[in-house]
Design a protein around this nucleic acid. Structure first.
Lengths: 221, 221
DNA sequence: TACAACTTACTGACAAGTCGGTAAGTTCTG
DNA sequence: CAGAACTTACCGACTTGTCAGTAAGTTGTA
């Protein structure tokens, strides 16, 4: 936006880099990584694409730094506070879902990029593999700590529950991006998280009795 | 795989078209729509890319027919049986999850394409919007029919539950594709569906009490 | 302070490759 | 022969990355 007449070299560079990273988030969110041209990112920050490459070396490297940036900012948002433990982690997840409704850009970038990352030799793949593994573990730990607190034996379904919680949050984002009027991102996230946690922590009656469905798979191979 | 020296024109054409559609599913699944080149699809069926264009007119059109094909095949799998109603629909969803573990190609195609469809002017977008709307409605109807059957008043959370169920199935697919060893696609799907349905149909105690998290959203705008 | 040596942050032009689509011609088949 | 099913050849558009050059700032030094 505003022109900066570099007072200090080092500081200005950092600002420019962050500006580029945010522009890249926008473009990758709007068009995906492979189809988000460097030119479009460049013109958002008043530069040529060669300038971007000067800063980041390659498009792949730019993607990796875009992904790292969000993590850095998310941690910054916690403002030195501890990583949430126990029930606090689930509250944090729900808060995040509510906050996400106000920043569709980043939500879209993550939704698009995480799915794109499963394609052949995608440079973001290792990042997302690691990210999901870490988040699942954090959720399992939170569940475990709740069980200890409440004197429950830890169920063997915590892994399933952890994966399901992340899955529902991601999946809801896609539906929300497609039909924002039909899907309430945060409400549904809160509902589902509570449902899955309830099931994991205190397995009660099974209103659907889906057990029989497990046995027979659909015909098509 | 095997070369076909067309014996009959009309019948062969249909076969060829379906063969192309399956090849396209593979390529779009592996590389996405925008980055899945027609050439790659063409060589899978022993053709040049111009041959594909001869059959489908444009790449966009090919995508739409790829998406329609799966619906057609899924319906065919039901073999003239009714669209599942009530509890049967949920059993069908779980069966599908188990069946999907055996066909990672199609799973990946849908995971990649549905997320890609939220990008700017994506030709698959209307299809996915409609698809999710329809599926959500089917699930809501199934819930409603269960409520009627059991003499329950229909909760106002059925919409949230329906979106959540679809979300968890989609989200688990992405995690499963990224780390197949860590995530059990079908088990987790069954677990989550049961959890969400339980919560929607018989809201019991809330072990997490996440209500307070709704009020305060995270700082970042 | 003054000036040289060096670094940083770019631009503009270009190379090299990819891709979708079209047009025109060829082969196959009924 | 007529028309469907292609192929070959090609265009135009787009992309990433490289490279040389330039303007501006920074550092070292006397």
């Amino acid at each position: 936006m505003t022109e900066r007449r570099a007072p200090r070299a080092r500081a200005t560079t950092l600002v420019k880099r962050t500006e580029i990273l945010h522009a890249a988030t926008t473009t990758f969110g709007a068009k995906g990584f492979k189809n988000g041209p460097l030119t479009e990112i460049a013109e958002q920050v008043g530069m040529t694409h060669a300038g971007i490459l000067h800063h980041f070396g390659s498009k792949d490297q730019l993607l990796l730094e875009v992904l790292k940036l969000r993590d850095a900012e998310d941690v910054a948002d916690l403002e030195g506070a501890h990583i949430p433990e126990g029930v606090e982690l689930f509250r944090h997840l729900v808060r995040t879902a509510f906050a996400n409704e106000a920043r569709p850009g980043i939500v879209q970038a993550y939704a698009v990029l995480s799915a794109e990352s499963v394609t052949d030799d995608h440079p973001g793949r290792p990042y997302f593999e690691e990210r999901y593994r870490t988040l699942r573990q954090e959720i399992v730990d939170a569940f475990t700590s709740i069980c200890v607190e409440r004197g429950l034996t830890t169920p063997h379904t915590l892994g399933l529950a952890a994966a399901s919680i992340l899955a529902v949050m991601d999946g809801l984002q896609v539906q929300w991006l497609l039909t924002p009027d039909d899907v309430q991102l945060a409400e549904a996230s809160a509902f589902a998280i509570e449902a899955i946690a309830a099931r994991a922590l205190s397995p009660q009656e099974l209103p659907l009795d889906l057990g029989s469905a497990r046995a027979s798979a659909a015909p098509r191979a």
